[in-house]
Amino acid sequence: MHWSKRNTEEEVQEEVAVWECESTECVGWMRKNFSFDEKPSCPLCGSSMKSGERMLSKLTNLQGR
């Protein structure tokens, strides 16, 4: 039997600006910094989106490595 310690690094969360779908039947949302449009439409249902905020995991940009 093998036992190992997993790397249990605590997940850092931050309040992030997001776009949220205005349709009550859709759960679509996206981070604002992932959108190129001034006011995007929902990628799931095509409805308009409204501005909001969510507590999300902090992302690290690995592109510069």
Rank of each mutant, 00 (worst) to 15 (best):
E10R: 09
E10P: 05
S51G: 14
H2W: 06
W19R: 02
S35H: 02
R6H: 07
E9W: 05
R31T: 15
E14A: 05
S23A: 15
L59Q: 09
S47V: 05
D37S: 14
G46E: 06
S48M: 11
W29N: 00
E9S: 11
Q13Y: 05
K32P: 01
K50D: 01
W19C: 00
V16M: 03
E15I: 13
G46A: 08
D37K: 09
C45Y: 05
E15H: 07
V12M: 04
V18Q: 02
F34I: 04
S4E: 13
N7P: 08
S51I: 12
E10D: 11
P43Y: 01
E25M: 09
N33Q: 10
K58N: 10
K50E: 04
R65D: 14
S35R: 01
Q63S: 15
C45T: 10
E15M: 12
V12C: 04
E25F: 08
S41A: 10
L44P: 03
Q13T: 05
N7E: 11
R6Y: 05
S47H: 07
G64F: 11
V27W: 00
T60Q: 06
S4A: 15
E25S: 12
S48W: 02
L56P: 07
T8V: 14
C26P: 06
E14W: 00
M49K: 01
A17K: 09
E38N: 13
V27L: 10
C42N: 01
K5D: 12
G52Y: 06
G28V: 06
S23R: 10
S48L: 13
C21R: 01
K32S: 00
S35D: 04
G28A: 08
Q63F: 11
L56N: 10
M49W: 01
C21E: 03
G64E: 15
L62Q: 07
W19V: 00
F34R: 08
